[in-house]
């Protein structure tokens, strides 16, 4: 299984990358949805971590698209925003796993 990280904040993205590699996983980070879709071919066993606030195509849109795949990967939304802001963005997407920032190793280790 591979972990794909869609996160525009360089610190968050780099530390997540380090953490998953440290856990012995294959992990790749993308600064936006566009570069993710250009290079990645997510499969069923993969985990996609999507920050909701992405430049360009929004995190919620990406999640919506991923959910329509025939064999969708595991999708985890991450966000540091207020709950109301998160609800608003995800209202058209339907249920999705969500982890709120600040993230810690304990929260993330449940993913793998």
């Amino acid at each position: 299984m591979a972990v794909h990280i869609l996160e525009d904040d360089p610190g968050v993205s780099d530390s997540l990358l380090m953490l998953f590699k440290n856990l012995g996983l294959e992990a790749t980070a993308y600064p936006d949805a566009e570069s993710f879709f250009e290079t990645a071919k997510p499969v069923k066993d993969d985990t996609i971590i999507v920050d909701l606030l992405l430049p360009g195509i929004s995190g919620a849109t990406v999640i919506g698209w991923l959910k329509t795949l025939k064999e969708p990967p595991r999708i985890v939304a991450i966000s540091g925003q207020a709950q109301s802001a998160i609800d608003r963005q995800l209202k058209d997407v339907g249920p999705v796993e969500l982890i709120r920032k600040p993230l810690s190793i304990q929260m993330l280790s449940t993913l793998v």
Binding site: D9, G11, V12, D14, S15, L16, M18, L19, G80, K101, P102, L103, S104, I105, L108
Partner: peptide, 10 residues
């Protein structure tokens, strides 16, 4: 939250 997440994970 952003830098704090990075600090914590590092």
């Amino acid at each position: 939250n952003q830098p704090l997440t990075a600090i914590m994970l590092y």
